[in-house]
Design a protein around this nucleic acid. Sequence first.
DNA 1: GTACTGATATGCT
DNA 2: GCATATCAGTACC
Length: 201
Amino acid sequence: MKLKRDFYERPTLEVAKDLLGKTLVKIQDEKIYRVKIVECEAYLGLEDRAAHSFHGKITPRVKSMWGEAGVAYVYFTYGMYYCMNVVTEKEGIPNAVLIRAAEPLEGLDFMSLNRYGKVYSELTKPQKKNLLNGPAKLCQCLNIDREYDGMSLLGNELYIEEGETVENVVVTGRIGIENSKEAKDYLYRFYIGGSPYVSKR
DNA sequence: GTACTGATATGCT
DNA sequence: GCATATCAGTACC
């Protein structure tokens, strides 16, 4: 069951929590990728110093964050990495949820080829564990780049479908924003407790 | 296990 | 010029 716009058009923190356990699906050239979302973070543009759209900023990069709910926001960072977000709430509210980590379900060989140039069975143990446990890794594996910025998640190429219900949700502070003053204490990070696929730290 | 480094686009001051 | 929503590799406990 593909999630519809009404799932995304809700308060960002609720969407972030509900995304855990859902399945992210990407279909490209007959290749099917399916991964279970195990970790994500909410970014609330208007009131959140750590968000790219803090205080209503609009730059070319964050443009799609202002669009309607159910659209992908893909940004380029540190000169070499992409990260994928899901835009939430109504058009004009620049909020999004960063997908931080996932558990591979289907298309493992495609993912490992994208990242290491090897099929999954040839990966070393640490390589298997590190396949999707970070936002930039996830994009490398799924071959997500700037082409996907602004793409609707309601179409047939990239979407999220209903998954299992998650009981053990852990809420903590976010990662990698140490200098964002008061925003670093916001408890906007959600992950599935006990899953070996979260990025931890 | 932790600690430091380099890769370097984008937007800020 | 400088910081950043990152990761991989290396060096060293």
